[in-house]
Amino acid sequence: MLHTFVALVEDKPGVLTRVASLFRRLNINIVSLTVGHSERVGVSRMTIVCDASPTAGHRIAASLYKLENVLEVDDVGQLSHVARELALIKVAATPKTRSMVFELVEVFRARIVDLAPESMMIEITGVESKIEGLIQVLNENGDRILEISRTGRMVMRRGQHTSRVLEAMRVPGIELPEDKIVDDGAAPSDVLMAEETGL
């Protein structure tokens, strides 16, 4: 089963190794891992997708928290969230075959970001299945794919949840009904939230 974790980590040398090494030690394969800056200075945000047994989530989150450089962990799991991946796909296309690719790009709401005499580069954003759909259609059309670069999944929970809320929520217990937190988005807490996170 695929698990998705969001980890906020200190932006320091070696932190990625520590996180990756943890999964290696648990003998769990990382399916995708994206890292970048978060809304906080000095804090990076990782989205880790891994293949592990359905009951492994608790132990992975608990083990991640044991790393000194890990500040917060969110096991996104079945919670309501938005997941996106970005891909760049370079296909072989001559002036004669370009129009077919343009059509596909239109249907998939992708974009052409580079056009050369014998190739085109497509930029597509979406859930994994959408990207895989485009790749499949390109293959079936006989458009030769020259290169694919995919970012891997990045996720963000829907609604009022922020990392700060997550931390507060963790203290009383881990089985809090998540929907409540998503739904109670009244205006005052909006303001509060923005202040708290320094946005």
Partner: peptide, 8 residues
Amino acid sequence: PHPMLKTE
């Protein structure tokens, strides 16, 4: 403290 401590 580890955020997943739980002795409620």
